[in-house]
C-alpha cells in the first residue's frame, strides 16, 4: 500500500508545532499502525532527519502508554482498540492519514506525538486507593464479594489510563478516567469505606490539574479502548453530592 502521512511535529511544549508530510510506498496490510511509524522512522533516520517521537510500550493494548489522534479520532477508526492494536488493513491504498498527539491543557506535549500524562497519576495519588498497609489484610474469603459486584467493579477497573477520553472530549474533561477509579473502589466492600473522602479529593484534584468540566456529550465512552461506561460519571456525581450533603450535617 502507498500511504501519505501528515504528522504533527513539535520540538517541546514551548515551541510551535506543524504538520509535516511523509510518504511511504511499501506498507503491508499486516503491519500495526505503530510498525508503520517504525518503518517511517528508520527511513527518516537514514535520511539524516529526526524520527517521530511517540509513546508506546507493551504493544498489546494493555499498558495504556500509546495513543495518538488518527484522522481526528483517538486511537483511530477501529472501535475499542488502542493505537498499537490498530493494523494497516483498516486503511486503503492511497489514503492520507493525519496523526496528532492527544491534545489537552493538562497533557503538555513532550515532543511530536508524546505527551505528559502525569496529571493522571496525581489524580490517583489524591485518593484512588484503599488505605491498607502491607500486612494488615484479613483472610481473603472473610469479605465475600458477590459475582455481580466483582464483575461490575472489574468493568470500571479495566481502565488503562491512556487518556483517549480526555483527548476526545471537547472540554478535555477527565471525568471518565476519574470516575472509573471511584466506581471501581466504591463497588467493593474493601473500598467503599473511604468513598466520601476519596470522591471529594479526586474531583478537586482533577480540577486542579486543569481538566475541563464534563457536559455529558459521552464522546469519551465512544473512543475508550476499554469501553468504560459513562454511568461511572453518574456514579461519581452521585457520590460527590452525597459526600457534600453528608458533610453539612
Amino acid at each position: 500500500m502507498k500511504i501519505k502521512l501528515k504528522i504533527w511535529r513539535q520540538r517541546d511544549s514551548r515551541s510551535k508545532g506543524e504538520f509535516k508530510e511523509y510518504h511511504l510506498d511499501d506498507v503491508s496490510k499486516d503491519m500495526s499502525f505503530l510498525e508503520m511509524l517504525d518503518t517511517l522512522n528508520i527511513k527518516l533516520i537514514k535520511q539524516g532527519d529526526l524520527p517521530v517521537e511517540f509513546d508506546h510500550d507493551c504493544r498489546e493494548g494493555i499498558c495504556g502508554q500509546c495513543g495518538v489522534m488518527i484522522n481526528g479520532i483517538a486511537h483511530g477508526p477501529l472501535k475499542n482498540t488502542t493505537t498499537c492494536q490498530l493494523h494497516m488493513r483498516s486503511f486503503n491504498d492511497g489514503d492520507t492519514i493525519h496523526v496528532e498527539p492527544f491534545k489537552a491543557a493538562a497533557f503538555p506535549i513532550v515532543r511530536d506525538l508524546k505527551v505528559n500524562r502525569s496529571a493522571f497519576d496525581n489524580i490517583i495519588s489524591s485518593g484512588g486507593y484503599v488505605s491498607v498497609d502491607t500486612g494488615q489484610a484479613p483472610e481473603a474469603n472473610s469479605i465475600p464479594v458477590t459475582f455481580e459486584e466483582a464483575e461490575s467493579a472489574f468493568d470500571a477497573a479495566a481502565c488503562i489510563g491512556c487518556g483517549a477520553c480526555v483527548a476526545s472530549c471537547k472540554n478535555s474533561s477527565a471525568a471518565l478516567f476519574t470516575s472509573a477509579k471511584i466506581s471501581h473502589l466504591a463497588r467493593l466492600p474493601q473500598g467503599d469505606k473511604e468513598t466520601s473522602t476519596r470522591v471529594v479529593n479526586m474531583v478537586n484534584q482533577m480540577e486542579e490539574e486543569g481538566f475541563g468540566y464534563c457536559t455529558n456529550t459521552e464522546a469519551c465512552q465512544v473512543e475508550c479502548p476499554e469501553n468504560i461506561s459513562v454511568l461511572n460519571i453518574a456514579r461519581m456525581n452521585y457520590e460527590y453530592n452525597k459526600a457534600k450533603v453528608l458533610a453539612k450535617k
Binding site: Y129, V132, T134, A137, A140, T146, E149, A150, G191
Partner: peptide, 19 residues
C-alpha cells in the same frame, strides 16, 4: 491473595461471593 483482595483487586468470584 489476602493483600490483593484488601487493596480492591477484583478477582473472579463464585456467585456466593467467595474466590
Amino acid at each position: 491473595i489476602d493483600q490483593a483482595v484488601a487493596q480492591g483487586v477484583p478477582f473472579g468470584r463464585e456467585y456466593g461471593g467467595y474466590l
